[in-house]
Design a protein around this nucleic acid. Structure first.
Lengths: 147, 147
DNA sequence: GCTTGACCCTCAAGTCACTTCAGGGTTTCT
DNA sequence: AGAAACCCTGAAGTGACTTGAGGGTCAAGC
């Protein structure tokens, strides 16, 4: 199987496969006479595993040891649990943050003045810029300015 | 005000300020004789605005025109609305994705075999690696179990 | 007067997970 | 035989910063 076929099977770009190889997540495959990469069924599984992990938001760095573990059937798999727990914690946190963010954005959204001019735009005011008159009184500290 | 003070006021690193300057989001500040950046109160506001936007997940590229808009009191602010609407849409989508992700991760998490060995680990099996041929072949390999 | 340490400066490179580009060679179809 | 579709390598680009190297400046304390 050549790289393009593998890519299509797993639903990933050719460049991504080569990238994973460079990163040491996929073994260097056999090569054809014309130096084309040549893969067996193993590669599909390994790449599928990686993609599955990535779709769960697991980083490449975290996938590395998972792959090792997955290939050592007698090993202790508590590490997998731990990694997942930590990951679930992170995802939960992200979700909380995003929920808060959505509330903030929605609160902003209703906040535009009917004039539809920046002058009266509550959004921009809430975002805390729009100089009212405070910049006028900017007491001039004399600092020598470089050319 | 020197860069360190500004950084502390706004709660951002000195490097980040210099980065924003390079990106053209902050104007080149005045310089002291010894070439130190010297900021007035304006900078605090502008930087605060940027940080507020960033905390809402708005990209630097999107902040650029917002800043321009915020400084042109007579302009039409419908663009701000549009940007926010689009952003809210994105955030909602991200939240849906993350919720799904959390369900998947939790489903995985309960799935480890009582032996706590990779051999029987449902998680890794669900992640779809552990080839049968491999498992059989290496069934006799004694793999040390982590404490 | 001299050292120490906390600041400040610039420029360059590193991070993550890819993607894109430049400049080729090979295979397959017509 | 020529074109399209595939493959190769190596390098650079993305975003939003962070880190590092290699310096200069300034106030306080000895």
């Amino acid at each position: 199987m050549r790289i393009g076929e593998l890519a299509e099977q797993v639903g990933v770009s050719v460049e991504t496969i080569r990238y994973y190889e460079r990163q040491g997540l996929l073994e260097n495959p056999a090569r054809s006479e014309s130096n084309y990469r040549s893969y067996g069924g193993e590669a599909t599984k390994r790449l599928g595993f990686i993609r599955q992990c990535r779709s769960l938001g697991i980083s490449l760095k975290e996938i590395q040891p998972l792959l090792k573990l997955a290939e050592a059937p007698g090993a202790y798999c508590g590490e997998v649990d731990a990694l997942l727990d930590e990951h679930i914690r992170k995802v939960r946190e992200q979700r909380r943050d995003l929920a808060k963010l959505e509330r903030q954005l929605k609160a902003l959204r209703v906040d535009c003045h009917p004039s539809m001019q920046v002058r009266g735009c509550g959004i921009l005011q809430d975002l805390a810029l729009v100089t009212e008159s405070e910049s006028r009184k900017s007491a001039d500290k004399k600092v020598s300015i470089r050319p």
